[in-house]
């Protein structure tokens, strides 16, 4: 069957097994993590800088925020990485190649 036909058949299916559903949500999470990271790291753009009227954000608070956000991202990425084996496999059977073809 051509890839196109396979895909079309897949598109027709709306209700999936629970496992397939979970797998897809994992993949969504993997995609959204980069967005979350961008947003978290963009927060400092809103902070008051040195010389502002209301007083700037202290360096210690800045450090605590940035490094906590960073650690949280790493933790989520760790969880996704450890479970990746179970969800990265596509229904079409396209799996990452285990090793280089030799020769």
């Amino acid at each position: 069957m051509s890839p196109e036909a396979t895909r079309r058949r897949r598109r027709e299916t709306v209700v999936h097994e629970r496992q397939t559903y979970r797998r897809r949500r994992h993949r969504d999470a993997a995609r959204l993590l980069a967005v979350l990271g961008t947003v978290l790291f963009a927060v400092p753009l809103l902070w008051e800088r040195a010389g502002a009227e209301g007083g700037a954000v202290a360096m210690s608070s800045a450090i605590i925020y940035l490094f906590s956000a960073w650690a949280a991202l790493i933790a989520i990425s760790f969880w996704l990485g450890v479970t990746a084996r179970h969800w990265e496999q596509d229904e079409t059977g396209s799996t990452p190649n285990q090793d280089a073809e030799t020769g």
């Binding site: 040195a50 954000v57 800045a62 450090i63």
Partner: peptide, 14 residues
């Protein structure tokens, strides 16, 4: 942390 805040780079300035 206290000494960082007291140093010349003690405020957010990016």
């Amino acid at each position: 942390m206290a000494r960082i805040d007291a140093s010349p780079i003690g405020e957010w300035n990016v």
